[in-house]
């Protein structure tokens, strides 16, 4: 099968400052003040068209940063992403305005997504139908519960039809019935042969939905492969991690943090 997304030695470096003084100092004399933090540290892997890749890892490991880089929202510091086709991030809560009503928000968010007048007219009834909001669609969004708001956002987001989709914690929307419905929608994408990146802490969802897993640890790729193999290793890791004492967990976190300060390239030297 053809490769759809190639991630080539991608690194994302952030400068960290302890105070405003350091920040100004670094601006005037680059590299003298502040310290580096490698949010993503030399990750490479290739994804084939039709793959559904789950990104897993503990909090702060860099899953979201990586998904943002693949989605083109954040530029990498070095390395590159070669994506064959249009990439779209399913961002449920982005682009909704609390002051506007549901139906106004549909047009508002569709405009932000770059839809034409005709396309908006075409998808609006589908969104109203999918969101299951009934008459609430004419109420301002500020009166919605968080579940209702997510439903609306999700219903709008899935009208996009890109080749590569990135979902960051999106399928835990609303109650169980709606979550099932969204999962069904995602499976529909999957069956149409779209490449999907799926970021989640819900491991059972990841296991059911993805055929490959990329396990990210401390900004680096620990393991990448078919779901059943990587998932087993990740589960074992989680179990072991839980068995560690509080001090040992802290020591492990610190080891990762130190590694991220200097980055892969320098450690090798």
């Amino acid at each position: 099968m053809a490769e759809s997304v190639i991630i080539k030695n991608v690194t994302k470096k952030y400068r960290m400052y302890k105070s405003k003084k350091e920040q100004i100092g670094d601006l005037l004399f680059p590299g003298k003040m502040g310290s580096d933090f490698n949010a993503i540290d030399g990750i490479s892997f290739a994804v084939e068209a039709g793959d559904v890749v789950g990104l897993v890892g503990i909090n702060g490991s860099g899953k979201s940063t990586l998904s943002n880089i693949i989605g083109g929202i954040v530029p990498p510091s070095s390395g590159e992403i070669i994506a064959k086709g249009e990439v779209n991030v399913i961002a449920i809560n982005a682009g909704l305005n609390n002051q506007l009503t549901g139906i106004e928000n549909i047009e508002f968010k569709c405009l932000l997504m770059g839809y034409s007048k005709e396309k908006i007219a075409e998808v609006t009834p589908q969104i109203v139908e999918f969101s299951e909001l009934g008459d609430f669609i004419y109420q301002p969004v500020k009166k919605y519960s968080s579940g209702m708001k997510s439903k609306l956002g999700f219903a709008i987001s899935v009208t996009a039809d890109p080749d590569i989709i990135i979902i960051d914690e999106a399928l835990s929307v609303g109650d169980q019935t709606f979550a099932d419905k969204s999962l069904a929608k995602m499976n529909e994408y999957k069956n149409r042969g779209k490449t999907i990146f799926f970021v989640s802490h819900n491991l059972s969802q990841v296991r059911n939905f993805c055929n490959k897993i990329a396990w990210i640890e401390g900004g680096q790729l620990r393991e990448y492969g078919p779901t059943n193999i990587v998932m087993k290793n990740y589960n074992n890791f989680i179990k072991q991690y839980h068995k560690l004492s509080y001090e040992e967990q802290k020591a492990f976190q610190k080891k990762l943090a130190d590694r991220r300060k200097y980055g892969k390239a320098k450690v090798k030297k």
């Binding site: 929202i73 779209n88 997504m113 770059g114």
Partner: peptide
């Protein structure tokens, strides 16, 4: 932040 995740 409103449009960050879209090709706006």
């Amino acid at each position: 932040s409103m449009v960050a995740k879209m090709n706006f």
